[in-house]
Structures are given as structure tokens and as C-alpha cells.
């Protein structure tokens, strides 16, 4: 069965919603019941990163194809380059959506634990800069009309974007003081979860949301491909 992973994603997310909101969680000061947001906030970012890595890989594929060997997909009327570029942009756009969801769930969490939706924290600011970097990717794409040129320029930008984004969200916040768990000397959540109760919900939630992200990106790709073939 080809669609097992789609069913798995739905089952895992439903499980994480039910177990995440109704199950027992560690009794911690300040965090209290908001610790349940871990099952929603972190998987959104993991999903975004997974989709951006997929976008990065397709960007490399797109650049590695020689223009003269492009007319191989006769039955679909598409060059391999344009399909790789389409894949790359679809993964990036769905990744951005999950990034926005990650920001929103983080803001709600911040309001309930730190007292403000946004604080001048290196982790938060880096995440915002990272999102702006990817927003520029879409602006760049929409500014180039020529399909071949757009694919190449946006693939180059995408390949630069991911390492910078990873440095911004994983390395820079660790070098300075930060309120965010796992950064600036703060313990990450694995040190709170002493009896591994949360891991039983957290890992399925991450897998479920990542699979759902890939499903949505795949649908977007297929839809765009049909639109492109209709316009050709």
C-alpha cells in the first residue's frame, strides 16, 4: 500500500493531540501545564527543518542537471530541472507555513511563561531572521520570469539559505545568554523528562507532523504540475 505513511501521519498526530493534552506531564514551576505545548511547538520547527532540507536537496538536483539534457521528460512536457525546481519551491513554501505555526505556538508559550509574546532573545530573533531569509527566497522567485533562470538563481539562494538558517537557530543562540530551553546554558527538555513519559508522545508527534508536511508538499507539487501541464 503506497499511502501507509499518510495514514501513519494522521494516526500519530491524533495520538499526540489526545495523549499530549490529557496525559500526565512533569510538575515543573513556571512551565506548569504549558509544558504540553512541547508536543506541538517543537514538532512544527522539526517539520520545517525537514522540509527545508528536502528543498535544499532538490535545489542541488536542480543545479546538477545540465540544461542540454533537460528535454528528457517527453511524456510530461517538463524538463528535469523544472520538476526539481518545482519540488524545491513546494517544500520551501510548506516549510514556511510550518515555521509560521512554530512561531505562533512559541509566542503563545512565551506569553504564558515569560510574560510577553516576543522578547529580545537571541533564539527568537534568529528564528525571525531565518524566516525573513526564506521569505526573500519567494520574493526572488517571483521577480524572475524566465523559468530556467529562476530555477538556477533560486536554487543557488536556497543552497546558501539552509546553512545560514541552521547556524542562526542552532549555533548562535548557544553562544550567548538565552531564555529559551536548550540555549545559553539552559537545560533542554530532555533533562526535565526523567521518566521518559514525554518522549512517548514527543517523538510520535514529530514523525506525524513531518509526514503530514511531506504529504501537503507532495499535494502542492502535483497540483502545480497539473497547472503547468495545462498552461503548456
Amino acid at each position: 500500500m503506497m499511502n501507509w505513511w499518510k495514514i501513519l501521519s494522521v494516526v500519530l498526530i491524533l495520538y499526540s493531540i489526545a495523549a499530549g493534552l490529557l496525559g500526565n506531564v512533569p510538575d515543573l514551576p513556571i512551565l506548569e501545564q504549558t509544558i504540553r505545548n512541547l508536543f506541538f511547538h517543537v514538532p512544527m520547527w522539526f517539520c520545517m527543518i525537514a522540509l527545508m532540507v528536502a528543498s535544499f536537496i532538490y535545489a542541488i538536483f536542480s543545479l546538477s542537471e545540465k540544461p542540454e539534457s533537460n528535454k528528457i521528460a517527453i511524456q510530461t512536457n517538463f524538463s528535469k530541472n523544472s520538476l526539481n525546481d518545482l519540488h524545491s519551491s513546494c517544500f520551501a513554501s510548506v516549510g514556511m507555513t510550518f515555521g509560521i505555526a512554530g512561531l505562533l505556538t512559541g509566542m503563545i508559550w512565551a506569553k504564558n511563561t515569560w510574560g510577553a509574546y516576543w522578547v529580545a532573545d537571541p533564539k527568537l530573533n534568529s528564528a525571525a531572521i531565518g524566516m525573513l531569509l526564506y521569505s526573500a527566497y519567494f520574493v526572488l522567485r517571483s521577480s524572475i520570469d524566465d523559468e530556467e533562470k529562476r530555477a538556477r538563481v533560486s536554487a543557488v539562494y536556497n543552497i546558501f539559505c539552509l546553512p545560514i538558517y541552521l547556524v542562526l537557530i542552532f549555533i548562535l543562540p548557544r553562544l550567548t545568554d538565552s531564555l529559551h530551553p536548550g540555549n545559553g546554558g539552559n537545560p533542554a527538555f530532555n533533562s526535565y523528562d526523567l521518566d521518559n513519559n514525554m518522549r512517548l508522545i514527543f517523538y510520535p508527534a514529530c514523525i506525524g507532523w513531518i509526514l503530514l508536511g511531506f504529504w501537503i508538499a507532495q499535494l502542492k507539487f502535483r497540483l502545480k504540475k497539473i497547472e503547468m501541464s495545462a498552461s503548456n
Binding site: I17, A18, L21, L22, N24, V25, P26, D27, L28, P29, E32, Q33, R36, D177, G184, G185, N186, P187, S191, Y192, L194, D195, N197
Partner: peptide, 25 residues
């Protein structure tokens, strides 16, 4: 100097107002 505060607890807590939470879920 960085100060690392690690809170360790094995105590678990249930959701507040479990009946309402079932409706929310």
C-alpha cells in the same frame, strides 16, 4: 560565568479540569 539551573522532578501532574480538556481534545 554561566549559571545552569537544572530542575529535576519525577512528580507528574494531570491536566487541570480533565472533563473540559476532553471536550477541547
Amino acid at each position: 560565568k554561566k549559571i545552569s539551573l537544572q530542575i529535576q522532578t519525577n512528580q507528574l501532574t494531570e491536566p487541570i479540569n480533565n472533563d473540559k480538556m476532553i471536550v477541547v481534545v
